[in-house]
Nucleic acid binder design. Structure first.
Length: 256
DNA sequence: ATGGCTTCATAGTGAAGA
């Protein structure tokens, strides 16, 4: 099973990129973030033509998540249970016996922002929910836009970013807390090129200069990690005209 | 240099992203 995460930064704008990418890449399960589309506008028919079932939870302007799958999805769950949240940031489903949890973790804006407090509360709620979920589903994948660069090697300028949102100690501690539930960062299971990132600012010619951050992740439970044979960042779509600022991350799990 | 782009909701600019 090949499983991917991609923050498309508007599915309406990026639908063609997604379609072309799916033609070129035989991915079984694709998790999307920042679709920025109400459910009524979700391009379900187009994706069906491309060979995918879909489950989605969207809203106007902001947020929005979706799971695409070549095989049917069951037990679809939207949002974190018992955590009231207007923002559409979570969708989960079971696919071929694997629990897939797609997340768009809040950005946080800045350390002195209310949005940062929201991010930390959100991460705590995610942690508590997944502690139960992973017991129910030993085969679990948690993937999406985490808005956290876990280590200094995951960003281009650790000194300049020190203490900033996306790299602050409480955010990194929360990330480690997720790993301690029995999840592995699939990207780090393998040898990777230095300066590997998944997001680059639209400004400053950041992509060309590789001024990026690795904030999109695929975390997999120990049981699945035994069968994980690769995890790669695909920079190809970031080179297209009018790209998303994020690029897909793809993991392959053999006979999960 | 807290900007630099891009998107969305607007119908001028402003918010938000990361």
């Amino acid at each position: 099973m090949k499983i991917a995460t991609w923050n498309v930064n508007s599915l309406k704008v990026r639908l063609q990129h997604l379609q072309e990418w799916l033609v070129a890449n035989p991915i079984d399960v694709v998790c999307l973030q920042e679709t920025k589309q109400q459910d009524a506008d979700f391009p379900q028919a187009d994706l069906q033509v491309a060979g995918y079932y879909s489950a989605f939870s969207g809203q106007k302007t902001y947020n929005g998540v979706a799971i695409l799958s070549r095989t049917p999805l069951s037990d679809v769950q939207m949002g974190i249970p018992n955590f009231a949240d207007e923002q559409k940031r979570v969708i989960a489903a079971t696919i071929n016996g694997v629990r897939v949890v797609c997340v768009y973790i809040p950005n946080g804006q800045s350390l002195d922002s209310d949005k940062y407090q929201y991010k930390l509360k959100w991460l705590a709620a995610l942690h508590d929910w997944l502690a139960e979920e992973i017991k129910r589903y030993p085969k679990l994948v948690l993937l999406g836009d985490f808005n956290i660069a876990p280590e200094d090697r995951d960003l281009y300028d650790p000194e300049g970013w020190a203490g900033n949102v996306l790299v602050s100690a409480p955010e990194r501690t929360a990330f480690q807390g997720l790993l301690q539930l029995g999840l592995r960062d699939s990207f780090r299971l393998f040898e990777q090129a230095a300066k590997s990132y998944s997001w680059w600012d639209y400004r400053m010619m950041a992509f060309r200069r590789n001024m990026g951050l690795r904030i999109d992740h695929i975390l997999i439970s120990e049981q699945l990690a035994l069968h994980c044979i690769s995890c790669v960042i695909d920079k190809t779509p970031r080179k297209l005209e009018r790209p998303s600022d994020h690029t897909p991350v793809v993991a392959e799990i053999q006979n999960p």
